[in-house]
């Protein structure tokens, strides 16, 4: 019996995980969501920027593609909602070519929801190759790095971008990153050199790698994974897909914790049986 449990088919575990994700979507229950310090810092910074007479400008670099859409899109939508709600202007760009259409769609959707005008309240510059080089280039010469936006309009003629010469003319920079060509490159090639307020929005798997940058002050705030997005949705009081996802997330975690404990118990019991057999 113990041997059977020890060699449990992994597909049974997959089935449990699948059900633990699906069922909480069908059975609704509330879970308390408290924003942590790093998420609150990003929220407070946008609030602070919105107090500026000009409304303030943030640069959102969409450095991810469809493979991590489920984790990063809710945070992107929540932050854009917050910015547009507070009349903060947003410039979007991408370091990941496969995420261009997706990023543009998110910006268009949110701008439409809040009645914002392209070129005046927001602009999407699209993708350029180079990652680190591009970051360094736009930090020194914004118009040189992105001569046009995705509509083909020259950015030195677009009302929102015409006065931006360097990265210092932007109030807050954030990278929504799923890996290489994202947060870390922004810190290495641009933030460390030009010392501006920078925040990261990342997948949960990469969040532990960025904590040292918070500690050193190179990164101002961090919205990590779907949980970070849910916290941001709580702060702006606009429940969305991230808050909805916290029920299945929590139940799936409980199921996994159960299987980890169960696996360990089986391991120790099995070890004890083996020792008894050896003695006999």
């Amino acid at each position: 019996m113990i041997q059977k449990l020890f060699n449990i088919d992994r597909r049974i575990i997959f089935a449990f995980i699948f059900l633990s994700v699906l069922l909480p979507f069908l059975v609704k229950f509330d879970l308390p969501i408290e924003a942590d310090k790093n998420v609150r810092t990003v929220y407070n910074k946008i609030e602070e920027i919105s107090q500026k007479a000009s409304g303030g400008i943030i640069l959102m670099s969409f450095d991810y593609d469809n493979s991590t859409k489920a984790e990063l899109e809710p945070a992107a939508r929540a932050i854009l909602s917050h910015a547009f709600m507070k009349n903060v202007k947003v410039i979007g760009m991408s370091n990941w070519p496969n995420g261009v259409t997706m990023a543009k769609t998110i910006m268009e959707d949110m701008a439409k929801e809040y009645g914002k005008q392209n070129g005046v309240d927001w602009a999407y510059l699209g993708y350029k190759s180079g990652a680190g080089l591009l970051m360094l280039n736009l930090s020194m010469d914004f118009h040189g790095a992105f001569p046009t936006d995705t509509r083909g309009e020259k950015i030195d003629q677009i009302p929102l971008t015409k006065n931006i010469r360097t990265i210092k003319d932007i109030d807050y920079v954030m990278s929504l990153s799923a890996g290489s060509g994202g947060i870390e490159e922004w810190i290495i090639y641009s933030q460390s050199k030009y010392n501006y307020a920078f925040a990261g929005v990342c997948t949960a798997v990469s969040a532990p790698d960025y904590f040292p940058f918070l500690q050193s002050g190179q990164m101002h705030g961090l919205v990590g994974g779907l949980a970070g997005a849910a916290q941001y949705e709580t702060l702006i009081n606009k429940p969305g897909t991230a808050i909805d996802g916290m029920r299945p997330q929590s139940v799936a975690h409980l199921v996994l914790i159960f299987f980890i404990i169960f696996g360990n118990i089986c391991y120790f019991v099995n070890k004890k049986f083996d020792m008894k057999k050896e003695r006999a």
């Binding site: 995980i17 699948f18 994700v21 699906l22 979507f25 493979s67 991590t68 859409k69 489920a70 984790e71 997948t203 949960a204 798997v205 990469s206 969040a207 532990p208 990590g224 994974g225 779907l226 949980a227 897909t241 909805d244 996802g245 299945p248 997330q249 799936a252 975690h253 996994l256």
Partner: peptide, 22 residues
């Protein structure tokens, strides 16, 4: 801690697909 965050990330991706499918 890294493993915990990895589990969280993978479950989040599954949540995205399940919410799309259903």
């Amino acid at each position: 801690a890294s493993f915990g965050y990895t589990v969280m990330a993978r479950v989040s991706l599954l949540i995205g697909r399940v919410s799309f499918l259903f």
